[in-house]
Each structure stands twice: as structure tokens, then as C-alpha cells.
Design a protein around this nucleic acid. Structure first.
Lengths: 248, 248
DNA sequence: TCGAATTTGTGCGTATGTATC
DNA sequence: GGATACATACGCACAAATTCG
């Protein structure tokens, strides 16, 4: 029977099936290049390319001089995106329980980039507070984010710096509530793509790995955008969780 | 200065920057292998690998005998995941407007697979109605999904087949309402990963491309799971859209 | 219509560097 | 030191598709 797939694809699919089927379990070593070469009567390059496909898919990761091992892809948790909690911008449901969630943030005033300005409904170049977040679970990076808030709303108040002052680290809703702005709605756009080399570096995963992308805008009761953010989440072991209530 | 990146990665990053910067616009042809070989004084394999990285990232796609061209990655729309609409399981916000949204479905009774049974809170192997969906925009596949509903709930009613009968093609809420079950809540888990070769085949994209994954469970007012589904969405041009209302 | 040139996609053999055992 | 293994890179080759003279 003719198999249209190229050799490297067939080898990669075979290995993926062996992993999914449990024949190769998490932590197990994938046959080495010389073994695969013999088994499939293929060249060095070809089997290497097959293994690269597996690694790009997050199924395995290589260790220099040791071998290539089946990666652990069981989800460690999910980031809760629909929570009404005002006390933290980083809530998660964890599978076993016992992972320390922390984050760091750095804020600098800046002119609004075009895309952020469009989402905020303000002229590009208007002054905004730009905050870069790094979210960690057990000291390992999970999510990178950057947020923009119009300084026209927060300048002169004590919530102007998201990570400083009496309302520090409270999350968007809690902080804006302190200056009399009720955040009642958020719109979130979710996508995915492969990580850039810079993102892969920051997230501690291989370049080209899959990441989930977020684009969120918060609105007050008058429908005015008060904050917008973009985030990149490691997709290998983290998911997003939405709770949808149907009204009426 | 020493650049730690391997040659193929440097070439790939260069090309990606030229695309992001607009030097190479959508539809433009990427320099051919022989041109890249000369430009970077690299080998055949190396430049080919660089271009493979670009293609895997969805930045470009090759055409046999013609060349490699910059892919159009502007979003064509977003799938609305929080809508209260009961009349369709496939709602979307479209960027220009004018894309025909259709879907096909095939249902067969089957024993519940382990994961689906766990999410439905029923014993594995219990009879369920298993429905496979294919969602299309302008005849091109956007999303694949498979849904499970316990036959204990729907057997003998006229909503047992999601795509047949008086309440056909209505979506989960509308159909269950017809048999007196009020679906008031859904929980959705969103992740992403690279497509399997089978998924890539069905979605009409290259194997290894990034897809967004969905895992949704619908609950009635007593908190009982009445339906669960898994879906795979093309990530190159489609996103998910959530509307989050903060109560209280 | 034929043929040559170009380009992608795949594949083989070999070599080098580096890390681990 | 030596064997093994990964990661990168070079040179070459061929099939299939397109383009152009």
C-alpha cells in the first residue's frame, strides 16, 4: 500500500502514537538516532527531522548528551478568566494543589501604541501607564502580559501605579473601584500561535512552541474602555477556564 | 559580537522581522533557496530549515515549483463563545462581513469514552449520543468538534438527534429547553497545541500548525452536566471571543 | 509542443562540536 | 579516555511542479 506521507512524517506519527498509546510513557527515552536509523532504514537527517517534529509539538524534549525524553504534558492548572475576585489579577485552578502563584510587575508611563489606543478608544500617542507583568507558578514562568491604562483616568490618584500604593496588586477592578470607576464588563479575544524566540526565552520553553494569546479590554458601566492588555500563556501545561452563565 | 543563535534560527528571525516590519508584505515572495544561500553563505539544508521554521509559525506557505509566499494572518473573525443565542451553535463576529457560516453534523449512539464520561459524571461505557461537527466559513473548515450527550436524558424524545427533528440545528440550549431542561451554565477550558496530521488534513492546513482547543461542558440549573464537547479551531485566522460580565 | 531553468520538498552521507555516562 | 547522543551544518541528489523561451 502506498503511503503518501514522507518518511520523516511517518516516523514522527509512529512515535506520537506510541506516546499517546502509553507504550512510551512520560519520562521514557525515545529511541536514539542510531536506533531509529536502523529501525526505519533512514538517514541521520531524516530521523532527526522526525524527532524535531515531535519536539516542536511538545511531545518530547532533548537533553544534550543524554537522549530525547517524553515530555510531561499533563495540565498543571487553568487560569480563571471569569472570576469576580477583585483581590488578585492572577487566579488559577490547580490540579493537585500546592503550587505557589506569584507575579512581578514594572510600570512606566508611555505614549499609547496604535493598537492599544484603538482598543481604548483614545488617540494614539496619548499618555498611558504601561505595565509589564510576569506570572509565575513555582518560580516558573506561566504567562507574560502587558497592560495599558489611560493616564487621563488615573493620573494624580493613588492607583496610578498598579503595583504600588495602598491598592497595589489588587487587580483592575479593585483598583478602579478605589477611584470610583465601576468595571462591569470585559471582552476577551483568545487565539494561539507559536512563540517568538524572545517569548520562548522569557517563558523558558523551546522556540516555536505553542502559546495561547489573550487580548482583554475592561469597560466601565458607561461602556468606556478603562484598561486593555495583551498576554501570552504557555500552552504546554496551562489552559484558560471560562465560566459562562446564560441569562434569560 | 557572538550570536548564540544557530544560523537557521538567525535567518528565520531575519525573515520574520522583514515580514513584521512590512518589508515583505502579504503575498510577497520570500527569497528563494538559492538566493538565501548566497545571501547568508549557508547550505541548502540550513536555509531550507530556516524557511521551515517560518512556515511552521504560519508566517509563510510554499507552493510547489513557484516559491514561498508571505501568508495572510489577519484575523477573519472570532467565534462568539458567550452568546446567549439559542438558535445556533455557531455564532461568529466577522471582520468585513459577508462570510457564509455553515456546518455539518453526523450523530451516532455510542458508549461514552472515559474522559467524556468523567466530565458528564456518568459511568464510562454508558450510552451517549456522539455527534461530530464540522464548521465552515466560506466552505473552508474552521472548526472540528465532537459532542456527547447522555442518552439517559434524550432517548425517546424528539431532540435525541441534534441535527434531525423539529428542533434540529438549534444548539444545546434550545434543544434541551424543548424537553424541559434549562441549561444555565457552561464551563469552557481553552488551550492550544500543534495539530495532528489527521486534524491538519481535515482543517486544510499544514501539519504541525497551531490550533486552539476547546473543552466545554453544559450544566442545568441543578448543576448536572447535560452535554460535553471537544473542539479544535484553526488558529491562523480565527480567534475566540468571550464576554465577561462582573456581577456585584 | 517541447525543453530548459527555476523552485519547492524530500532524502542520503558525512562532518564537527558539545555534553553525558 | 572512549563511547554514546544530541544539535548543527555542509554538499549533493532527485522528483514534482511551475515558468518561460
Amino acid at each position: 500500500m502506498g503511503d503518501a506521507r514522507p518518511v520523516y512524517q511517518r516516523i514522527a506519527d509512529d512515535l506520537r502514537e506510541r506516546i499517546d498509546g502509553g507504550d512510551l510513557s512520560v519520562g521514557a527515552q525515545i529511541p536514539s538516532r542510531s536506533q531509529l536509523k536502523r529501525a526505519y532504514a533512514a538517514s541521520d537527517q531524516t530521523v532527526d527531522r522526525a524527532v524535531r517534529v515531535l519536539k516542536a509539538a511538545g511531545y518530547a524534549q532533548g537533553q544534550f548528551g543524554r537522549g530525547v525524553f517524553v515530555a510531561d504534558r499533563t495540565p498543571v492548572g487553568s487560569l480563571l478568566r471569569s472570576t469576580g475576585a477583585v483581590d488578585s489579577p492572577f487566579a488559577a485552578r490547580l490540579v493537585p494543589g500546592g503550587v505557589a502563584l506569584t507575579w512581578e510587575a514594572v510600570s512606566t508611563p508611555a505614549p499609547a501604541p496604535r493598537e492599544a489606543a484603538r482598543r481604548l478608544g483614545i488617540p494614539a500617542g496619548d499618555r498611558v501607564m504601561c505595565t509589564q507583568y510576569e506570572y509565575l507558578a513555582d518560580r516558573k514562568p506561566v504567562q507574560l502580559a502587558v497592560s495599558w491604562e489611560p493616564l487621563a483616568l488615573t493620573d494624580g490618584t493613588d492607583v496610578v501605579f498598579p503595583e504600588r500604593g495602598p491598592y497595589a496588586r489588587r487587580g483592575v477592578r479593585g483598583r478602579f473601584a478605589a477611584i470610583g470607576i465601576r468595571v462591569v464588563r470585559a471582552a476577551e479575544l483568545v487565539g494561539s500561535r507559536s512563540a517568538t524566540t524572545a517569548e520562548a526565552e522569557a517563558l523558558g520553553c523551546a522556540p516555536g512552541q505553542c502559546v495561547t494569546t489573550l487580548e482583554r479590554t475592561h469597560y466601565d458601566e458607561r461602556g468606556r474602555a478603562v484598561e486593555t492588555s495583551e498576554a501570552v500563556v504557555r500552552a504546554d501545561r496551562w489552559r484558560l477556564e471560562y465560566d459562562i452563565a446564560f441569562t434569560g
